[in-house]
């Protein structure tokens, strides 16, 4: 890993735009990822995730704007950026007639890892990705999951500080997905900065410190999942569990101006609440003052999928 005195963000996109003919694939996207952070990049197909990741990986040029890895421009200093970056693309070509060990050895040499460092890195990466058992196996005989492991191994072979993973779990079976998630968690624990895109939002929510939601090239929201929820939250989902009949409670809550879309049946009442904590407390007080037996009174968090669906509109470019 290249030693760096850089204290700023590990990844930074500055007003990035990329046009393909008349289509604007990435439109004025800016965000930062701090060192050691795991950033989830979410968006429907064709939203511009892969394009912005490829720009960061020095494979594409933006129409305008800049992308930085540890303070160095991916556009103007790609040769310096490449040493600090591991990129795992969505689709990638391999040399079918080489075996896993030869493939990783070739990339270690290509990244300038030589001598004992190379053998040590090879051992470490093959052990980490579980490829040590498949060292002699030709790449053309590998399953999709194994190829993904190999690609991750290739991205890690030079011990980069920043990892860009484009849909690493796409097309994997549940076991392979869980194993891949464990690997990514382990990498995050090692302090690597990770930018990851995925369609499996529940997994991203568990792994990521922050997320960015992109649609039609525009970044619609960034921050932690909780921050985005808060930005979106005009109403709260409240769930009340009542001992006995819900009708008196419904009768009490229904007329309140802060209550919306109220539903009550079999001891459960759900409604949307307009207002802050004070209104939520006031409603609880109304119920308890009316001697209604409240078993549970809670705010129900929206999942990342709910947030995603609320923010995006399903437009495809």
């Amino acid at each position: 890993m290249i030693a760096s005195s850089w204290n700023g963000p590990a990844i930074e996109l500055q007003r990035l735009c990329r046009d393909f003919g008349s289509t604007r694939a990435v439109n004025d996207v800016s965000f930062t990822v701090p060192p050691g952070g795991v950033f989830g990049y979410i968006g429907p197909n064709g939203a511009g995730k892969t394009t912005s990741m490829r720009i960061l990986a020095t494979l594409e040029l933006p129409t305008s704007g800049d992308a930085f890895i540890q303070g160095l421009s991916a556009i103007n200093d790609p040769d310096r950026v490449r040493g600090r970056l591991g990129f795992m693309p969505d689709g990638f070509g391999t040399y079918g007639d080489t075996n896993c060990a030869e493939y990783l050895d070739f990339f270690a040499r290509s990244y300038g890892v030589i001598g004992r460092d190379r053998t040590r890195r090879l051992r470490r990466v093959m052990e980490f990705t579980g490829l040590d058992q498949l060292a002699y196996k030709p790449i053309r005989g590998l399953s999709k999951g194994m190829k993904q492991r190999l690609c991750l191994g290739r991205a890690l072979i030079h011990d980069p500080a920043v990892l860009i993973l484009d849909e690493p779990a796409a097309g994997l079976d549940p076991r392979a997905r869980i194993e891949l998630r464990q690997m990514i968690r382990a990498l995050a624990a090692e302090g690597k900065t990770i930018l990851i895109s995925s369609h499996i939002l529940t997994e991203l929510a568990e792994m990521c410190d922050s997320v960015g939601i992109i649609e039609r090239g525009c970044l619609l929201a960034t921050g932690t999942v909780e921050e985005i929820r808060r930005q979106l939250r005009k109403t709260r989902n409240i769930l009340v569990r009542i001992l006995g009949d819900v009708a008196p409670a419904v009768k009490l809550l229904q007329p309140h101006p802060a209550v919306d879309q109220l539903e009550g049946e079999r001891g459960l009442i759900r409604f949307h609440l307009h207002g802050g904590d004070d209104v939520q407390v006031e409603l609880l007080r109304i119920l308890t003052d009316a001697r209604i037996d409240v078993l549970d009174y809670a705010t129900v968090d929206e999942s990342l999928e709910d947030v995603f669906l609320q923010i995006t509109q399903g437009h495809v470019q």
Partner: peptide
């Protein structure tokens, strides 16, 4: 053609 060049292009090989 096979997309392996992109993988080479992001290494330190000039």
């Amino acid at each position: 053609d096979d997309g392996t060049f992109e993988m080479l292009a992001i290494t330190k090989l000039s």
